[in-house]
Simulated assay, not measured.
Amino acid sequence: MSSLLVDDCERYKHFLVAPTPEFRGPRTVKTSKRWRPFAEEPMGTGSQKQAVLILRGMFDWLVKVRYLAGNPWTAVKDPVVIVQAEHMQVDRALSRNSWDTVVDVLTLRAAEPDNQQDRVALAAILLMGDSGLRRAEAASARQDKLKASRHASGVWMLTVLGKRNKIRKVPVSGRTIDALRAHWRDRGLDFDSTPADLPLLAPLVVPGTSAAQARHRDHGANGYRANSLYDLIAGALDRVQAHVAEHTSQEAPLLTPEALVQLKHTSPHAFRHTFGTLAVEDDMPIVVVQDVLGHASAATTSIYVKTKEKRIAEAAELYYERRRSSVGNEAVKKT
């Protein structure tokens, strides 16, 4: 690193735009032989800038402790980042019908005795879609932080540690509790016994890697990692799509072709957006949605209102077009 020049830093900055194939790979744990430092999809400009900032900060520290005489990254300009007014991709939120279909199909599959993976996936998806949790928050949620509400029947409250190390309380639905109970039975545990410092979600099938075996040696004391939860949910959504394809018909499709395409590209974070969108549609106060989602600013939560306005505008456009066509037809008949 002491030999690094500004030109080297510039070349690395350009490398971040399109890393060569040997540096890219699928998202997986670092202990896997398939792990690579970069994902297969291109890195966004925001991530490129973050990488440069991290390297510059690291070299600043090395200069301060007198390991290096100077910091070449000081002369390197940050990658240009185009800032979007609405940076959250709330358009990935599922429609009400798609969300209900996902839950209904997984509930049906979870009723089969051998479908343990569907039961834990259903619990995880409901934690995100009914409570607005981030994937990492669902993975780290603990059972002793979940209690029945004293203020409303059928509602539980879960204390979670979210972004910026902020603690908040989120509501948990009765159907989520039922799904958690079923998952805990699969783990050989009684969900309704004395609250325990155990993860709400824990893998029932542990990979054969030494790291995974060591992490889950205590039989459920450690829950899912966020990336493992991603894989669990992705697999469950694949099974939902297969079920829909098998049981749908042109006369009564479970999902439209457009909804199926969206579901194929749905990530776990989309369920958090689904909660925000549907909560606003059902007239949950914005301040409450903000508290549940843990947004630092009400302006962030207001994006879900704008999403609703977009749908209203699109529906109104179709309505007005039909009205214009109707009026035009009447005029033709009179002439």
Results as ranks from 00 to 15, higher is better:
residue 4 L to D: 07
residue 10 E to G: 04
residue 12 Y to M: 01
residue 13 K to P: 07
residue 22 E to M: 07
residue 25 G to D: 04
residue 26 P to M: 06
residue 28 T to F: 05
residue 28 T to V: 11
residue 28 T to E: 05
residue 28 T to C: 10
residue 34 R to T: 06
residue 36 R to T: 00
residue 40 E to Q: 08
residue 40 E to L: 11
residue 41 E to F: 09
residue 44 G to C: 07
residue 45 T to K: 08
residue 48 Q to F: 01
residue 48 Q to L: 06
residue 50 Q to N: 13
residue 51 A to N: 09
residue 58 M to S: 10
residue 63 V to S: 09
residue 67 Y to G: 15
residue 67 Y to P: 14
residue 72 P to R: 05
residue 74 T to K: 15
residue 76 V to Y: 07
residue 77 K to H: 10
residue 89 Q to G: 06
residue 90 V to F: 08
residue 98 S to I: 02
residue 101 T to I: 03
residue 102 V to Q: 02
residue 103 V to G: 01
residue 108 L to R: 11
residue 115 N to T: 03
residue 116 Q to T: 12
residue 117 Q to K: 09
residue 120 V to A: 14
residue 124 A to H: 03
residue 126 L to V: 04
residue 126 L to T: 01
residue 129 G to T: 04
residue 130 D to K: 14
residue 132 G to N: 05
residue 136 A to G: 12
residue 138 A to P: 00
residue 139 A to L: 11
residue 139 A to C: 11
residue 144 D to G: 13
residue 146 L to T: 03
residue 146 L to F: 03
residue 154 G to T: 05
residue 157 M to Y: 10
residue 162 G to R: 03
residue 165 N to G: 04
residue 166 K to G: 09
residue 171 P to Y: 02
residue 176 T to W: 00
residue 184 W to D: 02
residue 186 D to P: 04
residue 187 R to N: 07
residue 195 P to A: 02
residue 205 V to E: 14
residue 212 A to L: 13
residue 213 Q to V: 08
residue 214 A to Y: 06
residue 216 H to E: 01
residue 218 D to Q: 05
residue 218 D to P: 00
residue 219 H to D: 12
residue 221 A to M: 12
residue 224 Y to L: 06
residue 226 A to I: 11
residue 230 Y to P: 03
residue 232 L to T: 02
residue 235 G to D: 08
residue 240 V to S: 07
residue 242 A to M: 14
residue 244 V to E: 06
residue 252 A to W: 08
residue 259 A to C: 10
residue 267 S to N: 15
residue 272 R to A: 10
residue 276 G to F: 00
residue 277 T to P: 08
residue 285 P to I: 00
residue 287 V to L: 14
residue 289 V to Y: 00
residue 290 Q to F: 05
residue 291 D to S: 15
residue 292 V to F: 01
residue 294 G to S: 13
residue 295 H to F: 08
residue 298 A to D: 14
residue 299 A to L: 10
residue 299 A to E: 13
residue 311 R to M: 07
residue 312 I to G: 11
residue 314 E to F: 04
residue 316 A to E: 07
residue 320 Y to I: 11
